[in-house]
Write a protein that binds this DNA or RNA. Structure first.
Lengths: 353, 353
DNA sequence: CTGTTAGCGCGTTCAA
DNA sequence: TTGAACGCGCTAACAG
């Protein structure tokens, strides 16, 4: 009965062997028709394609092909535990676009691995049918990193942390922070920082000279180190620098934090943020508090996004898109991981210097 | 020699069989350790995990598992030929976030299939190792649609076109356009439209009463039909309605197009756009031309994005995130495709009524 | 240009 | 609770 139904009309699962049989050729000829068409005579090819059409065969099964070839032709991207974050953050979007560019031209797919922060993250990594991994910046203690390393496939981390056995694509955050911090703090007496979270608990605080070494997000840590250096360069000890740690990269939260800073007794006259979004929030708060930028308070951002141009923000320019592409090339084994990505400080009207 | 190297230190490709052998159990026991841990004695499980650790075995091979199970636990998303577009458009980002939500909670991966517009798009679809497809709105004649249908896996189209055999998740664009168009055109004598492209060639033009039926992007077509209806409702024939067709969904291009409309001899006093981005561009152009919104020219957007709140735009509210989730559920076979997604007109200060 | 052989690594079957 | 055999669907490596 089953055999009787197993005809073209039903065709739940048509195999290459069935196609070959119907076409009156060997399975290999059918396989070649799909994989090396030039190695098959015009005649055979036509017969195979006709049989495939008749049976409703849509091409070789991708899983079987992957198993046989030992390659999935797909790259895995791990974007951190905020699912939506990946798509809502414009910088992350540029990064993904860079990966997509390379995948498209290489004929690769791009699998976004949803990470939830729960224990099963590790098994999601293990069971991902991908040839290589790209990990968006995370904390030193993220278990995902161990899982990615354990599967022994090519893998690259963007931003940090640096993990033995995995590549790293990043700018020199410390140097860039020192440079843009120098612009932010020029002529200032009370420099402040609006920061990304220090660790995965994402606690918001306002403190002076927080412990930098204890921060487990390496990108945050390195930028704080750069800002500390910039403060010390103008003779301000880190313990005098007020740092508003925000839970998320978000204009609204940065605005609130900046408002708090400015209403305090030791209101800053210079603010180095960690993103243009945060800087935009800081500027809004400054204006709401009746301050003029940059004369009353200088502000710097990071990333040189569209909003930076609009607001005339001094900021760090880097190409997340190129970095995404570099990660993809490295994960594909096309190119070695480049030593360090390019960055520059773009000086605009939001700083004094 | 090869055997000598095939030890834990090298361990290029460790199989479950090797793990089982080293653990002194059968392959099945090892398999159960990973797939049905409860069916294996504590002892055996420990032995298997120890052997796995010793050999550097990272878990069952995903491709082999997919082949055997007949399921990849991955959903494919087809986002159209602009690779970066998917990530740069905030609406598309929300949509992807909705899909990601569902994939995360279902333990599924999410593969973005890079579409280039070239002939190999079809083969990319065919060779995608996914259990189902979600197709972002495209044109009636997009070859991707045929390819998706041909693979006979669950598939959903968002927005349109409606394809036999594929599900459709969309709002009623025609009804929504008529409703928001009515708000836009209230009290107007010279209504105009700023439109998405009509077809895949993405030609920009400014014409009166363009041929609606010839538009191959169904979403554009349906919205134009709604706008025509809204114009006719106030006694203006479609042939008198000026339509600026933009190549892309982009504030800058809409601004330029609106500037052209307003400088013409028959300057509009009401503009219905197809996105909030476009509406934002239209408002900028109107102000630059010395017009007041809405008294000189009313403007409406679409999507109720953040910019709509900022600008006080009358617009169509819909949740792309929920629609993304609905697509994912349908593609997973969890739920049937819902009949039609919810929408509403949000009236703000950019219209007269 | 075409066919034969031999698995890729795993998990479902059935038996013990 | 565990084991042995088999095949998921396909393609690399060889002949012919």
């Amino acid at each position: 009965m089953l055999d009787a139904m197993d005809s073209a009309a039903d065709a739940k699962r048509v195999t290459l062997a069935q196609v070959a049989q119907r076409a009156g050729v060997s399975v290999m000829t059918a396989s070649y028709t799909y994989n090396r068409p030039s190695r098959v005579s015009e005649q055979s090819r036509a017969k195979v394609l006709a049989a495939a059409a008749a049976l409703g065969y849509a091409g070789p099964d991708p899983s079987a092909r992957s198993l046989r070839r030992g390659s999935t032709r797909t790259l895995g991207v791990v974007m951190g535990e905020h699912l939506s974050y990946a798509f809502e953050d414009p910088q992350a979007a540029s990064f993904l676009a860079g990966i997509a560019d390379v995948c498209a031209e290489s004929g690769y797919g791009m699998t976004i691995l949803p990470i939830t922060g729960a224990d099963d993250d590790v098994s999601r990594i293990q069971s991902a049918a991908v040839d290589g991994f790209i990990v968006w910046t995370t904390s030193d203690d993220d278990p995902v990193l161990g899982a990615v390393r354990a599967v022994r496939r090519p893998a690259v981390v963007h931003g940090g942390p640096e993990v033995a056995g995995l590549g790293l694509v990043s700018i020199d955050n410390r140097a860039a922070a020192r440079a843009v911090g120098t612009a932010a703090f020029a002529g200032a007496g009370r420099p402040a920082v609006v920061s990304f979270p220090l660790s995965r608990d994402r606690i918001s605080t306002i403190t002076r000279g927080p412990d930098i070494a204890g921060a487990t997000f390496p990108v945050t840590r390195q930028r704080l180190e750069g800002y500390r250096q910039a403060a010390e360069d103008i003779g301000i000890p880190w313990s005098d620098v007020v740092v508003a740690v925000c839970a998320h990269n978000d204009a609204a939260e940065a605005e609130q934090a900046t408002a708090a800073l400015l209403s305090g007794t030791h209101a800053p006259d210079a603010i180095a943020a960690m993103s243009d979004e945060q800087a935009a929030g800081a500027i809004r708060a400054a204006r709401a508090a009746g301050r003029t930028v940059p004369s009353d308070v200088a502000v710097t951002g990071w990333d040189d996004a569209a909003v930076a141009t609009q607001l005339g923000l001094t900021t760090v320019a880097q190409s997340l898109r190129e970095q995404g592409a570099a990660c993809a090339h490295a994960a594909l084994g096309h190119e070695p991981v480049p030593p360090a990505a390019a960055w520059s400080v773009v000086t605009r009207a939001s700083t004094r210097s």
